[in-house]
Simulated scan of single mutants.
Amino acid sequence: MDLTVLGYVIYLLISVVLTVWVARTLSRNGRIFLADVLKGDENLADAVNRLLVVGFYLVNFGFVALYLRQDATIDTARHLLEGLSVKIGIVLLVLGAMHLGNVFVLNKIRRRGTLEREQQPPVAPQAWTPPAGA
C-alpha cells in the first residue's frame, strides 16, 4: 500500500474519531448550559442540542474531507507522521474554534436573558399615579 493512501486512511480515522468524541462530550456537558440559556425549557434545550451536534458534524466532516488532499508525495514514515501531525493539528484547532464560537454565542444569549429577567419588577405595581401637570 502506498504511504500516501495509508496517510489518508489514518487521517480520516483519527479525524472522525476526534470529531465524534468532541461532539458527544460537548452535547452531554452542554445540555445543562443550554437549559439555563433557554430558561429551563428542557425539550427545547434537547432539540437545540441535537441541532448543534448535527451542524457540528456537518462542518467538521466537510472540513476534514476538503483538507484530505496531500500535495507532497509521502515516501518515508517520517513524512507520513509529519503530514499527519499537521493535518490533525489543524483539525483540532478547527474543533476548538467551533467550540469557542458556540460558547461565545450561547453566553451572549444567556447574558441577554439574565438582563431581561433582572429588568422586570419583582412585584406588580400597587397603584397608578397620573403624570404631573395633567
Results as ranks from 00 to 15, higher is better:
Arg24Ile: 15
Leu58Asn: 04
Leu95Tyr: 03
Gly101Pro: 09
Ala97Arg: 01
Gly30Thr: 05
Ile10Lys: 02
Leu6Ala: 13
Asp71Thr: 07
Met98Gly: 15
Val105Lys: 01
Ile90Arg: 02
Pro125Phe: 00
Ala72Ile: 11
Thr19Trp: 01
Ile14Gly: 08
Val105Met: 04
Ile88Tyr: 02
Gly40Gln: 01
Ile88Asn: 06
Gly89Ile: 05
Val53Tyr: 00
Lys39Ala: 12
Asp46Ala: 07
Leu52Pro: 08
Leu106Val: 11
Glu116Pro: 09
Leu26Gln: 11
Leu66Pro: 08
Leu81Ile: 15
Arg28Ala: 14
Met98Val: 14
Val91Tyr: 01
Leu80Tyr: 06
Arg69Asn: 14
Asp41Leu: 02
Val91Asp: 05
Tyr11Trp: 03
Ile10Gly: 05
Asp36Arg: 03
Val64Lys: 00
Gln70Phe: 09
Leu68Pro: 08
Leu115Thr: 12
Ala127Lys: 03
Glu118Asn: 07
Pro122Gln: 00
Met1Cys: 13
Glu82Gly: 09
Glu116Asn: 05
Gln120Cys: 08
Arg78Tyr: 13
Ala45Gln: 04
Leu34Gly: 09
Arg24Asp: 13
Gly83Met: 01
Val59Gln: 03
Gln119Glu: 12
Ala77Asp: 09
Leu100Arg: 04
Arg117Pro: 14
Gln120Tyr: 04
Asp36Gln: 05
Ala23Val: 15
Ile14Ser: 09
Met1Lys: 03
Leu18Ser: 14
Thr25Gly: 13
Arg112Ile: 15
His79Phe: 04
Arg110Ser: 15
Lys39Val: 15
Lys87Val: 14
Val54Leu: 11
Ser85Asn: 08
Ile14Gln: 03
His79Arg: 06
Thr76Asn: 04
Asn49Gly: 11
Pro122Ser: 00
Val64Phe: 02
Ala35Ser: 13
Thr73Ala: 09
Phe61Met: 07
Lys87Phe: 11
Asn107Gly: 06
Val53Arg: 03
Leu68Asp: 07
Asn43Lys: 06
Glu116Arg: 04
Trp128Tyr: 12
Val64Trp: 00
Arg112Gly: 11
Leu3Ala: 06
Arg111Thr: 15
Phe56Gly: 08
Leu58Lys: 02
Gly96Arg: 00
Leu12Lys: 03
Val17Ser: 06
Phe63Gly: 10
Val64Ala: 11
Ile74Phe: 03
Ala77Pro: 13
Thr25Ile: 07
Val20Asp: 02
Pro130Met: 00
Val17Asp: 05
Val5Asn: 06
Leu84Ala: 06
Met1His: 07
Gly7Val: 07
Val86Arg: 04
Ala45Val: 07
Arg78Val: 15
Leu100Asn: 08
Asn29Met: 08
His99Thr: 15
Phe33Gly: 12
Leu13Trp: 06
Asp71Asn: 04
Tyr11Glu: 10
Asp75Glu: 10
Leu34Thr: 12
Leu52Lys: 01
Lys108Ala: 14
Asn102Ala: 12
Gln126Ala: 13
Leu38Ala: 07
Asp75Trp: 00
Gly55Glu: 04
Arg117Ile: 12
Leu106Met: 09
Arg31Lys: 09
Ser85Cys: 10
Gln119Tyr: 02
Leu3Val: 11
Val105Trp: 02
Leu44Met: 12
Gly30Ala: 03
Leu13Tyr: 06
Arg28Glu: 15
Val53Asp: 03
